[in-house]
């Protein structure tokens, strides 16, 4: 249907959308700034790669195991994060990113600097696109359900005022761990898809710069909203491809885009207080009146 290049870009963006949604749960809904999200993604990808190459598990059996293991590791790694708040938390998560990456790079079990190759993908490239698309849709449904559930409400109250939430009887620690567990479970899915799509992974793929890219996506699109996370992942995922002709200036444009956005539209493109959603709400409020007068 499409060329191989388009499909590769589309699958990559699909994986980024899942990553952005998962970080949006931790940072957008629960308000816990994470600057080390690529670490959880890496844990998912390495787990999936090891299950596939060492144990020879097929895709569909490896998938639930990867999600479970990543969610468990994510909640374990969240424990040091519970002791610290706000900026201390942000920097602790950077630390976790570096430590996790170092473990992948230096422990021979994880393939060291060579990474892990030879992961067998059971699908053709184009069917991989459809599978990724289906998973993105599943995640969207899951996210909608989460926001309206009591977990979503509890997370929101922790984001708005942790002390007030605790006084109202919300078990802050448990819900923070839940946010990290759900978020990293989804990165497990993203890691599983990534490992099987790329068939080769190395520690460099999951460094601190990747964490920044994922965080930029949700802030760019509009933090705390699902539409923002999706749009941010699409725009910042497509941007490197669009700016390929000006390769030398690509990163500069990327940095400039972040500054420009934060300076003039700090809520992101589709954030609740940003220009576009306001316009949209205005049009929607006005249209019944137009219909009546017409």
């Amino acid at each position: 249907m499409f060329g191989g290049y388009i499909i590769t870009v589309a699958v990559t963006i699909g994986i980024y959308i899942i990553l952005a949604m998962s970080l949006n749960i931790i940072t957008g809904y629960a308000g816990q700034i994470s600057l080390g999200h690529a670490a959880f993604w890496g844990i998912g990808a390495y787990c999936s790669a090891l299950l596939s190459t060492r144990l020879g598990l097929p895709f569909w059996i490896g998938l639930p195991m990867t999600i479970a293991i990543t969610a468990l590791t994510g909640s374990l790694l969240a424990i040091p994060c519970l002791r610290v708040r706000e900026d201390f938390l942000a920097i602790t998560t950077i630390g976790i990113n570096f430590v996790v990456q170092a473990v992948f790079l230096y422990v021979p079990f994880f393939g060291g600097a060579m990474g892990i190759g030879g992961i067998r993908s059971p699908f053709s490239t184009s069917s991989f696109f459809w599978i990724t698309l289906i998973f993105v849709l599943v995640c969207i449904v899951l996210d909608r359900w989460l926001v309206t559930s009591w977990i979503g409400l509890a997370l929101e109250s922790i984001r708005e005022d942790e002390t007030a939430a605790a006084i109202s009887g919300i078990d802050v620690v448990r819900f923070k761990v839940a946010a990290f567990a759900i978020g990293s479970g989804l990165t497990g899915l993203a890691g599983h898809l990534y490992a099987h799509f790329m068939t080769f992974i190395s520690a460099d793929d999951f460094g601190f710069p990747q964490s920044i890219v994922i965080l930029s996506m949700i802030v760019f699109g509009g933090i705390g909203t699902l539409r923002g996370a999706i749009l941010g992942a699409i725009i910042l995922g497509v941007a490197p491809e669009i700016f390929r002709p000006v390769l030398d200036y690509r990163t500069l444009i990327y940095g400039g885009l972040l500054i420009f956005m934060m300076r003039f539209q700090p809520g992101g493109i589709l954030g609740d207080q940003s220009v576009l959603p306001k316009l949209f709400r205005m049009v929607r409020q006005r249209s019944p009146a137009l219909v009546r007068s017409g």
Partner: peptide, 24 residues
């Protein structure tokens, strides 16, 4: 201009600036 906003905004702006500076 960013001080009154949530802390993640100046953080991302600062990261963007750092990336841009390295490229310059």
């Amino acid at each position: 201009p960013l001080l009154a906003l949530p802390r993640i905004v100046p953080l991302i702006a600062s990261i963007g600036l750092f990336i841009a500076m390295e490229e310059i």
